[in-house]
């Protein structure tokens, strides 16, 4: 693993702010998050729905529209070292790195393809400005499609003529054609069948390995994280609560939420009772004080109710935000 991170996120905060009918609502969906993504690794982000995963990567990618606002902190890419965050970069700077350095595979990405444009045209829209001449371009696209095991004939197809798995491969080919340094993937396989999903994930790993890109991979599916990612960050209610190499998270998670999340996963071959946590994830418009997990936490003590725990590195590469766990370790 190389030393310099390709993405440095420091104390990033973003909130949904609305002001309607005299009522101010402030929903801190991304709250003081810091982590690094290194070159040539797949970093996974896990968490339940409304834990802020998608908001976090939108903030990182600079896709910030009201009511979402960047409140503070930075998300710095190695290929744009002078820029605190993409949201503040000039349009020209963003246009220069978009797709050539940074690609984004969006949630439900089977539906991002323009339904009235042939796939080949979509490739031109996305990538032609970044790669060579028109003649050369066609060849490069066809060669690249082979990597994702698609026939050149799909370039003449419309999206509706392709199956879900094929469309997903097209979007992955789109995202990787310019050999970007960094790929953001938001639940790229959630809508796919398990068999197709396994195929697509294996392919993403192959391409990532061959191109040496980094991927920030977001999904709530812990099985996918186990199979694919190198390191894993666990989010709960807008905060990062634990981060470690993926196998460490599955073998020896420390945070009570992570431990519970993993223990609750059903497995074939093991029929012992699975318990779910009591309570529900908090509403961030009215988040509990202190540690946001404390109302559901079996280990909660007094300090958890008043003071938010900081991420503390307890072992090499293993950070946890929990008063009880860090207290015992100290």
């Amino acid at each position: 693993m190389s030393a310099a991170p390709i993405l440095q996120v420091r104390n990033l905060r973003a909130a949904f702010r609305t002001h309607h009918f005299g009522v101010r609502r402030d929903v801190p969906a991304v709250d003081d998050i810091s982590f690094d993504v290194r070159a040539n690794e797949i970093y996974g982000l896990a968490g339940e729905s409304s834990s802020g995963k998608t908001t976090l990567i939108k903030t990182i990618a600079g896709v910030i529209k009201p009511p979402l606002e960047l409140v503070g902190g930075s998300a710095r890419f190695a290929f744009l070292p002078d820029c605190e965050s993409l949201a503040q970069a000039s349009p020209a700077a963003v246009a220069a790195i978009r797709w050539s350095k940074l690609a984004y595979i969006m949630q439900g990405s089977m539906n991002v393809l323009n339904p009235v444009r042939r796939i080949g045209k979509t490739f031109e829209d996305f990538a032609l400005r970044h790669i060579g001449s028109a003649g050369d371009f066609q060849q490069r696209v066809e060669a690249h499609l082979q990597r994702v095991r698609l026939e050149p004939s799909v370039l003449r197809s419309y999206p509706h003529e392709l199956s879900g798995g094929m469309r997903q491969r097209v979007t992955i080919a789109l995202a990787t054609i310019c050999a970007p340094d960094f790929i953001i993937a938001d639940e790229p396989t959630t809508a796919l069948d398990v068999i197709v999903q396994k195929d697509v994930l294996a392919m993403m790993r192959d391409i990532q390995g061959a191109m040496g890109a980094s991927i920030l991979f977001v999904t709530h599916d812990m099985g996918v994280h186990a199979a694919l990612t190198d390191r894993l960050g666990i989010m709960y209610a807008g905060r990062l609560v634990e981060e470690a190499p993926t196998d460490v998270i599955f073998r020896g998670a420390l945070h009570p939420y992570t431990r519970h999340l993993i223990a609750s996963l059903p497995r074939i071959g093991d029929r012992s009772e699975r318990k779910s946590l009591t309570g529900v994830p908090p509403n961030l418009a009215n988040a509990p004080p202190g540690c946001r997990f404390h109302p559901r936490c079996p280990l909660a003590v007094d300090i958890c109710r008043v003071q938010a725990p900081a991420m503390t590195e307890l072992a090499t590469q293993h950070r946890v935000a929990c008063h009880v766990v860090t207290g015992e370790a100290a």
């Binding site: 398990v194 068999i195 999903q197 790993r205 993926t246 074939i268």
Partner: peptide
């Protein structure tokens, strides 16, 4: 095939090794 495609915590690194 369906059973093999299920990804569980135990499938750690199946794609890594293939690469």
């Amino acid at each position: 095939m369906l059973k093999d495609a299920v990804l569980t915590p135990d499938s750690a690194g199946i794609f890594r090794s293939s690469v």
